[in-house]
Design a protein around this nucleic acid. Structure first.
Length: 633
DNA sequence: ATAGGGTTAG
């Protein structure tokens, strides 16, 4: 047992622990408790008598307990200090009680913390803050909100220490309504929107996908720190405004904020979303210049960036340069080969992965199946699918089924795909039915499409793409009444067809086109180019395929609509605005239409250009009249 | 007495 020496006793009496090292405090407390325990058990009902010998203990300064708590190394020690404080009536000291609540929640003993909190006669704003924060830290949002509500109900004033906790709870739960309420409370109580509250609100709005609200607050912050910049940049990328992400990144650097690795990962992620190749190169240069270490996460993000910007080779270079790879890095690279239609390379890489001793997970296998599906490697895909559990201990989930339905569907084996769906014991989702419906469209099978559609619409799909697909199938079969029904259903469910757009980078600037667009400054030249292209294309036997036009309009009009699809406009612009023989890269937000696919093949031939198209699902590399997807997409 | 941001499929 540690022995109390005079010096220590003096220190304790004065509430100063300057002469004690951090680690010597605990034994002192233990010793005090020990002695005190002996004393109280001898003389439980005679508190007057106990005082003479241990008088100094009762007059202990609260600072002693606070220091003792700070030096606690586990929950048991906190409980001991609590017991000691209780004996001396120290719990009535609000600072001691608050500290105890804080340390109980630090050790995740929320029951103890709340017990103490609940028993407090007087609470100050710190008490509320540590209690609300305690619940927030362990992820007990119900009690976090509950305590906060109690705070408001008691007429206490919330403070800037409490609010960030509650706001972060809203963020994690993606509870926008509650988040707004708290934002409102800030104004109602006339609290000042300090840095912490503001940063938390920005983060909350970003995670609830209210990017404009986040931006509004972000712009109002006087001092924007790196983390908040990063949140904002990532938020824009997440909600499809990756362009703005890169603009913000520039702005951040202009303001002299120096990015760290996490910020760079976020920017790389934004660039992957955007698919802008020259930006990818710039960011890569920046990363190399600033000597950011190519760790697993940054490396993997860069693999993804290069692959999604259309350059699998550069992605592979990064992959090979990475010293440490995890299952995510391997999966990203396999997936990249998949959506570039290089199924064989995906398989090779998968084998390499196995021989390097890395175990695949469900995402690796989904990527692999996806690669097989997009390269028409039907048998290989089916083999992997059937042996996932035995070979890799990975359970098949609905995503794997979706890949295989896609695989069979593309190969025209619709009946097998349907049989597979019917045999499933796990829950079917709309992605699965969507894949099947897509296959029915490709192979013009209205009967199976109707079955798929029934299930799909039962799921109350919010994805307009599925309705358009179905409408497309009906239109193709000339069933205009059914087309009208789908249209009604869409408006009932307040869904609008996602407008298609394509964009192209020329001279470091992006140019965006929608169908029939005439807003581009060089519009006149673009349409002239289109006209001359169509004349040349007709000479090589191109016939517009009006099956890809949804509207119930006459043939002439259909051809007109088809001719001005956004991807055609972007390509025409690419041809007039870039040097000959350079490749043209375009990005489309939806799946590329069949007629445009044919168009691209022919243009690649007659104009002698490589055309790289990124659509919603994958890449198409057109060269000398052929496409890397082998018309299999 | 206050914290927070990052990678793969669909």
């Amino acid at each position: 047992m540690f022995k109390l020496r005079d010096r220590s006793i003096i220190a304790l009496r004065n509430g100063k622990l300057g002469c004690c090292t951090a680690h010597s405090v605990i034994p002192i407390v233990e010793s005090i408790i020990e002695t005190q325990f002996r004393q109280t058990s001898l003389n439980l009902h005679n508190r007057e008598e106990e005082s003479s010998k241990f008088h100094f203990l009762q007059r202990l300064n609260p600072k002693f307990y606070i220091s003792a708590l700070v030096n606690c190394r586990n929950l048991t020690q906190v409980r001991q200090v609590h017991a000691q404080a209780s004996v001396h009536g120290m719990l009535e000291n609000i600072v001691v009680a608050n500290k105890l609540i804080y340390f109980y929640s630090y050790y995740r003993a929320l029951d103890d913390a709340y017990g103490l909190f609940d028993g407090m006669c007087v609470r100050d704003s710190v008490s509320w803050s540590v209690m609300v924060g305690g619940f927030a830290k362990v992820g007990d949002y119900i009690n976090c909100f509950g305590t906060f509500r109690e705070l408001i109900r008691c007429g206490a004033r919330p403070d800037n220490y409490t609010l960030p906790f509650v706001i972060r709870a809203c963020r994690d739960l993606k509870n926008l309504q509650m988040g707004r309420l708290i934002h409102h409370i800030v104004y109602k109580f006339g609290l000042d929107l300090d840095h912490f509250v503001c940063a938390a609100l920005v983060d909350m709005y970003v995670k609830c996908r209210e990017i404009e609200d986040a931006r509004f607050l972000f712009d109002k912050m006087q001092e924007r720190d790196l983390v908040t910049w990063t949140v904002m940049i990532g938020g824009y990328a997440e909600c499809g405004k990756a362009n703005e992400s890169l603009v913000l990144f520039e702005k951040m650097r202009e303001e002299g904020v120096v990015p760290d690795k996490v910020a760079m990962v976020t920017v790389v992620f934004a660039c992957a979303k955007l698919g802008a190749m020259h930006k990818a190169r710039i960011i890569d240069d920046y990363i190399q210049r600033k000597k950011f270490q190519l760790d697993v996460i940054l490396g993997t993000a860069m693999i993804d960036m290069y692959a999604k910007c259309g350059c699998v080779e550069s992605a592979r270079e990064i992959f090979d340069r990475m010293e440490e790879k995890n299952v995510i890095s391997w999966s990203a690279m396999i997936a990249a080969y998949g959506y570039h239609g290089q199924g064989r390379k995906a398989l090779d890489l998968f084998r390499m992965m196995l021989s390097s001793g890395m175990l695949p997970d469900k995402i690796t296998l989904a990527s692999l199946l996806y690669a097989c599906s997009h390269a028409g490697l039907v048998e290989e895909g089916l083999r992997f699918f059937s042996s996932m559990w035995e070979d890799y201990s990975v359970r098949t989930d609905v995503k794997h089924y979706t890949c295989v339905v896609d695989l069979l569907g593309r190969a025209g084996r619709l009946d097998e795909a349907f049989k597979l769906i019917k045999s499933m014991t796990i829950e079917k989702d709309e992605g699965l039915w969507g894949a099947f419906l897509g296959a029915c469209r490709t192979h013009k099978d209205v009967v199976l499409a109707e079955k798929a559609a029934t299930s799909l619409l039962e799921l109350q799909s919010q994805n307009p793409g599925h309705y358009v697909l179905l409408s497309n199938i009906y239109a193709n079969a000339g069933r205009w009444e059914d087309v009208a029904k789908i249209r009604d259903l869409m408006s009932q469910r307040r869904l609008k067809k996602t407008p298609g757009w394509t964009w192209i980078e020329v001279d470091n600037k992006s140019h965006q086109f929608s169908v029939g667009d005439t807003t581009h400054p060089r519009s006149k030249e673009i349409y002239e180019m289109l006209k001359s292209l169509s004349n040349k294309l007709e000479l090589v036997g191109y016939v517009p395929d009006t099956n890809f036009v949804l509207h119930d309009v006459d043939e002439e009009l259909k051809i007109g609509i088809l001719y001005t699809h956004s991807e055609k406009l972007a390509i025409a612009f690419g041809l007039i605005a870039t040097p000959e023989h350079t490749s043209i890269r375009i990005i489309k937000n939806l799946r590329v239409c069949g007629d445009c696919h044919t168009f691209c093949k022919l243009v690649s031939e007659i104009a002698g250009r490589v055309i790289i198209v990124r659509d919603a699902n994958r890449f198409h590399h057109f060269k000398e009249g052929a496409c890397s997807c082998g018309d299999y997409w």
